[in-house]
Design a protein around this nucleic acid. Structure first.
Length: 270
DNA sequence: AATCGCGCCTGACGGC
DNA sequence: TGCCGTCAGGCGCGAT
């Protein structure tokens, strides 16, 4: 599933193809997503110039003069750059076609993704206003984490996946960051010491930035052919249940907690 | 305010 | 071979 590093890579990768380009038209092939694609979207986008492209959490933002196209890839969404128009296939939902023929195509098998037009006042938008700090900025730091977590009883794994606390941490990187920090995922977050909070924040930053550097876990869309990203071979616990821990050799544990899978080493994470 | 768990959705996979 | 149940999970939302 696309997580923050994947969106960051997508954001950077799509810029050369979209930035400054004028949208000549849009096409909706299947409007059924998390929220139906608004019929007004086509008219709103036509003639717009992509001024900037940015990321907030796992959201991708195409910023134009009169508003912003907000895209979320959900579980299975992809955005592909096509050098020119081709016939849409299964699960293709939406195209942005630029005046130089470049087409950006949104495909989503499970339809948890979303595509919507939001106004200029981005901070006021419901989906963005409650998001916590970006994990790779200084606003997300040990003291912030410590302060926010004091009164909370949720387990640390759920806490770091709460987008109101910090934006864009999904299941893969939550598991990996906790392993790197040596913290047992089921500890109530309010019980973590200041030092452990600091360590976890640093682990989150480290995991995310190294994944961005090697190209993400899941996708490399840049040539239009999806590949397994290089970060997959860096995974220490995720989907490694039963396999030996890279540090101590004991079997990686798997549990389902709160409708989520957790992977951890009982010996290295306490 | 915080927490819990549902529902959305398709495809892969395993058992019979 | 085919059918059916289970799992995968982001995240908004309603219930408690």
């Amino acid at each position: 599933m696309p997580e923050l590093p994947e969106i960051e890579i997508l954001c950077a990768g799509i810029k050369p193809y979209a930035l400054g380009n004028v949208i000549s038209k849009c096409a909706v092939y299947n409007n059924s997503l998390r929220w139906p694609i608004s019929p007004e979207l086509i008219g709103l986008l036509q003639g717009q110039t992509i001024k900037t492209i940015s990321r907030r959490g796992k959201y991708l933002l195409f910023n134009c003069d009169t508003g912003c196209l907000l895209i979320h890839l959900g579980m299975t969404g992809t955005l592909r750059v096509l050098p020119h128009f081709t016939m849409p296939g299964k699960h293709d939902h939406f195209d942005i076609i630029f005046n130089n023929q470049i087409t950006v195509r949104f495909n989503d098998v499970r339809r948890f993704g979303s595509v919507q037009w939001i106004g200029l006042n981005l901070q006021k938008h419901k989906l963005l206003s409650d998001l916590g700090p970006e994990p790779l900025t200084n606003n997300f730091n040990g003291l912030y984490f410590y302060t926010k977590s004091r009164t909370r009883k949720v387990i640390v794994k759920q806490f770091i996946m709460d987008h109101k606390i910090v934006a864009g941490i999904g299941n893969i990187y939550a598991n990996e960051a906790l392993f790197l920090a040596g913290i047992q995922p089921k500890i109530p977050v309010g019980q973590l010491s200041k030092n452990r909070c600091r360590r976890l924040v640093e682990s989150i930053k480290s995991i995310l930035s190294s994944s961005i550097i090697v190209g993400g876990t899941m996708l490399d869309f840049r040539d239009g052919n999806e590949r397994v990203g290089a970060f997959t071979k860096h995974l220490r616990v995720y989907k490694r249940n039963g396999e030996p821990c890279h540090i101590c050799g004991s079997a990686i544990k798997y549990e389902r907690i709160g409708m989520r899978s957790i992977y951890y080493c009982e010996n290295c994470q306490r």
